[in-house]
Write a protein that binds this DNA or RNA. Structure first.
Length: 268
DNA sequence: CGAGGTACCTGACAGC
DNA sequence: TGCTGTCAGGTACCTC
C-alpha cells in the first residue's frame, strides 16, 4: 500500500533515472488508468520529480505536469535501453513511456484504481489546494499540527490522520502504527487526548515516517518499489499482527470501512 | 461537522 | 475442480 514513505522511495528512484530525459512517445494500454490527454503534451522534458502527500508530480517543461497516484497497486518498471523490454512483466501494463535515451518506463496497474494524467499550472495548484500539509515538511511544527487538530475536536483521531485534506501522506498502516507508538486508542476523539499525548503523536509520526523511508518503505501485498522491495514491514507493531510487542492480544476493528489493529492494553 | 456507506477494481485465499 | 464470499484499500461522493 503505497503511503508517504513508499511514494517517497519511488520518487527518489524515478528522479535518479528520469530527470533530464525527454518523453518522446507514449503507448496507452489502459485508458481508464492513463489519460489520453497525455498524448497532447508529448514531447516533454522532465525537469524534476516531487511528491505531495501520496501524489507523484513530474515537473515538465513549458509549465506542464504529469500527475500520478499509485493507489494500491501502481508500479513503475524502468527499462534501460540496453535491456530487452520483453523481459519485463507484460501483465497489467497500463502505459509505456518512451524516452529519448532509448530507455522505457512502464506503468503497471493491477486493480486499475491507479491514475496518470497531465495538467497545467492551474490544475496543479488546484490539486495542491485540496491537500493538507506534509507531515515531514520542515515547517510542519507541533504548534501547526496542534492547531489543525483543535479545529476538529469531535473527530476520530485515526480517521483524521488518514484524511488527506487534513494531513497529506498518511494512510491506514502508518496511522495505526503511529497511534500504537504514541499509546493512543484509535477510537478516541481528538478532544479526549491529552496535550502530552498529542505532542507524542506528532514526534512519533515524523520519526515513524522517516524510519520507513530509510527502509525504502513497507512491502505488504503488492507493493514494490522500482529497484526491489522495502523492508519496513519487519518493524510494524500492530498492523495485521496477533500480539503487540508486550504480548497483549491485538484487536481488529473497522473504522470508516478500513481495518484498524490496536492493542487495547497499551492504547488506553 | 462527522460518521457511515457505496462505488470503483482485481487478485488472493478460505471454505464448501 | 469450481464456485462463492470476504478481504485488501485511496479517494470521491452521497446520505443522515
Amino acid at each position: 500500500m503505497p503511503e508517504l514513505p513508499e511514494v517517497e522511495t519511488v520518487v527518489r528512484q524515478l528522479s535518479s533515472k528520469l530527470v533530464g530525459q525527454k518523453i518522446v512517445k507514449i503507448d496507452i494500454r489502459d485508458h481508464l488508468v492513463v489519460s489520453s490527454t497525455i498524448k497532447k503534451i508529448i514531447p516533454a522534458k522532465i525537469l524534476g520529480i516531487s511528491r505531495y502527500g501520496k501524489w507523484i508530480i513530474l515537473n515538465l517543461d513549458q509549465h506542464r505536469y504529469l500527475v500520478i497516484h499509485l493507489r494500491m497497486t501502481g508500479h513503475f518498471y524502468y527499462i534501460p535501453k540496453e535491456n530487452n523490454p520483453s523481459l519485463f512483466p507484460q501483465k497489467y501494463v497500463a502505459g509505456i513511456f518512451h524516452l529519448d535515451s532509448g530507455s522505457h518506463l512502464t506503468f503497471n496497474s493491477i486493480r486499475r484504481f491507479e491514475r496518470i494524467f497531465s495538467t497545467n499550472q492551474k490544475g496543479f495548484a488546484k490539486l495542491l489546494a485540496k491537500l493538507g500539509p506534509d507531515p515531514l515538511a520542515e515547517n510542519f511544527t507541533f504548534p501547526h499540527f496542534n492547531s489543525l487538530l483543535n479545529r476538529f475536536p469531535h473527530a476520530n483521531i485515526k480517521t483524521k490522520l488518514m484524511d488527506q485534506h487534513f494531513l497529506a501522506g498518511v494512510g491506514n498502516i502508518y496511522a495505526q502504527e503511529a497511534l500504537y507508538r504514541a499509546k493512543i486508542n484509535p477510537l478516541q476523539r481528538i478532544q479526549e487526548i491529552s496535550p502530552p499525548k498529542l505532542k507524542q503523536l506528532y514526534s512519533t509520526l515524523r520519526t515513524l515516517l522517516q524510519q520507513a523511508i530509510d527502509h525504502n518503505g513497507t512491502t505488504v501485498h503488492n507493493f514494490a518499489h522500482i529497484d526491489g522491495k522495502g523492508d519496513f514491514q519487519n518493524f510494524l507493531a500492530v498492523y495485521q499482527k496477533d500480539k503487540c510487542q508486550k504480548s497483549h492480544l491485538i484487536t481488529r476493528i473497522v473504522q470508516a470501512g478500513r481495518s484498524t489493529y490496536y492493542c487495547p492494553v497499551c492504547q488506553k
